[in-house]
Amino acid sequence: MTLILFFEQLLNGIQFGTMLFLMSSGLTLIFGVMGLINLAHGSFYMIGAFSAALIAALTESFWLALLASLAGAAIAGVLIEIIIIRRLYRRDHLDQVLATFALILLLSEGVRWCFGAFPLYLNIPNILNGTVPIFDNIIYSKYRLFIIFMGFLIALGLYILITKTRLGIRIRAGQNDRQMISALGVDISKLYTIVFAIGASLAGLAGAMIGAIQSVEVGMGEPILILAFVVIVIGGIGSIKGALVGSILVGVTDTIGRIFLPELLKVFMEPSNATSVGSSIGSMLIYILMALILIIKPSGLFGKS
């Protein structure tokens, strides 16, 4: 029984991790190429979810809604990059933090203005409803498996994009030396806009996919944004490989810790205490993990020191 539960939670952890990867890969790419700390990344997650909910309500197609989340977040990303973010690349980290914090207020309230304060819902298509058996006696939600599949597909896509395409070469060159590639005739401001839009659309897709399990509401991006920060700090800022490893690590630790820590503590203390202590520590577990990793490696697992 516990083994089945453990396996199921492990899959939940991986599913959570793949979504974190969609968030954190964009975040780390934007930091790596443009040197920008983007606190407003969670807003694209929200914008993606709202675009999906809007299109789903109009067309009743989940697949169009997923496309809309990519497109909506990408369009918002391009506009915001051109109007505001572009002016921040040369500024210090403090200005970036504040401006993007202000951007969160602006975008959250803007969305609340347009869509109202009530949460919207996004339905899972019939084909992904229900469960599938994985091994003999383990059944698992189809939709969550779909999310894991999408997550790995996008990780693979990003890998190909970065290592095999011309755009990828430019992005890597941008990470190494910004001045040099603009001197070599690459239109750097266009490249920045593209990278920002890629990051935003990945976040938007994550928002739409999670929005179908939870609800689509204002401020939904903030908890996951902070987790994405934890991920890239653990993985090393600027490293996509680090983002992948960090995402799975954080996703699994968080999910497993919340479920099994109270159980584990019941061995040592009374059940009622164990539940409250266990769930409190369980919610802090990833931060403890982060602190431990930073004590050993201050620049993250794959970071350049």
Binding site: V97, V233, S283
Partner: peptide
């Protein structure tokens, strides 16, 4: 022990840790 962006994010994460603790501690 860290500096720059790491420092910003770690201080943020520690505050979040206490935030989640305060939410899940029922007493």
């Amino acid at each position: 022990r860290t500096s720059g962006v790491y420092f910003i994010m770690i201080t943020l994460a520690f505050a979040q840790m206490l935030y989640f603790f305060s939410i899940s501690w029922p007493n």
